[in-house]
Write a protein that binds this DNA or RNA. Structure first.
Lengths: 235, 235
DNA sequence: CGACCACTTGAACTATCTCAAGGACCGTGG
DNA sequence: CCACGGTCCTTGAGATAGTTCAAGTGGTCG
């Protein structure tokens, strides 16, 4: 597969050649001719934080930024049920029975690929549909991890787990960061962890007091050590 | 597709012909020749409640019973992260990074299909892999539903939601039941809802006192009305 | 400068947990 | 047949983790 890609390198569309996402996520599964076809109809956008991303017509590669997925309950209660980081993608075949709302948590850059064409390729390319299946199963594993956290972890374990998750995903290259800006407000963190924003604030302060993290400007986090945090995460 | 199935009916293996799962779940996606190939190497078992189902060599169709998926945390804490009811199936391509433990919650009847052959068919049959993808996405939607419940619902809303989920899944034919036996102990319900078993017991008693459900022999539930319970479920 | 937003911290409150006692059922062995 | 130990469940009373309400800080923007 890789051999074939290389052999056809001359055909890879110009915008894809320099794209960071080219060898990750969904795009990894496209061959040069598929890319060529898609590139014609693809387009890049940048949207500000807070934008709702409900584009049913496209699959979108996230080139930068963080997207949150939320579900709403009665009384205005909200739960964040997942995140997407670069170079992940948004979009799926089959409508969800209970749809989630996707919203830019930060400024987000996207590359949109026409849904119909992607799904047409899927029907022909086992590699592509296999890639999508793998992605769905990874998301399922993660959702189940958070079910365990929501159901059985204490507030401080939830915060430690959350910081680790961000550290492991915020770098598009896939490395675990020890220093990063939180892409979320305290309210959003609370809506993800099933807490109130006051508890989030208190527990972050506690981790700071105990020396497990440093916090600068409310949002910038430096981890004392990843293994220290893992020990606090309750797994 | 249905036409083709009918035309080849003579070729459908005998055990499949009378199988309840034949037209549901995974099996729906097999054509007659695939079924014929699989049937040679398939086998039925019945296992008692409590059996761990960690068969890496097979995909298993659940013909009857309920399977629970659990994840464990430190201090012996446990969270049930999902259920499988007949005629669902167990098994997946790609290993999970963080595996869940599958365990029979009741007596369970299974039909096992050799993993290697199923995955070989997947590589050739777009319908089959599409079916698996749809299944994975359905499970993902459900897991996210329960994330919202675990993070943001009260104990009594969780119990109401749980009873509805059981009512909607316990009948293999897919109808919503208003009268059924709980397939789980109070401890298991607690491990699913992120509560203690005492709280589960108390909240069930409260629903009984309030007339929303009847409870006979600890385990048999009759719903006063589905919509009444939906109103109590907090969605 | 004033208003606003995101955040922090304190103090009182409460939903749920923990600990504890007891009841119903069930299989086993005497 | 009954006594038993075990499992599952119920219910009460006190403890607590996390919430709610409330006040205040610091930064940003018009």
């Amino acid at each position: 597969m890789a051999v074939r890609q290389d052999a056809q390198r001359a055909d890879i569309p110009t915008p894809c050649k320099s794209c960071e996402a080219r060898h990750h996520g969904l795009c990894r599964a496209f061959n040069a001719s598929q890319l060529a076809e898609l590139a014609k109809a693809s387009s890049r956008h940048e949207v500000p934080a807070g934008t709702e991303l409900s584009d049913r017509e496209n699959y979108s590669i996230i080139l930068s930024g963080v997207v949150k997925l939320t579900r709403n309950l009665s009384n205005g209660r909200q739960q964040i049920v997942g995140f997407h980081f670069a170079p992940d993608f948004l979009g799926r075949p089959f409508e969800a029975k209970k749809p989630v709302k996707a919203e830019a948590a930060t400024k987000v850059t996207l590359c949109s690929l026409p849904r119909a064409r992607v799904e047409q390729m899927m029907r022909k390319s086992p590699e592509l549909s296999s890639r999508l299946l793998e992605h769905a199963l990874d998301e399922l594993d993660e959702a189940r991890d958070w079910m365990a956290a929501l159901g059985r972890k204490t507030a401080s374990e939830k915060i430690a787990s959350f910081l680790l998750m961000i550290a492991r995903n915020i770098d598009p290259a896939g490395n675990c960061s020890t220093s990063f800006d939180l892409p979320l407000t305290r309210v959003e963190i609370a809506d993800f962890l099933g807490l109130t924003f006051e508890t989030v604030s208190r527990e972050l302060s506690r981790l700071r007091t105990e020396g497990a993290v440093e916090i600068a400007n409310k949002r910038h986090i430096s981890l004392e050590s990843v293994s220290r945090l893992e020990a606090l995460s309750g797994d």
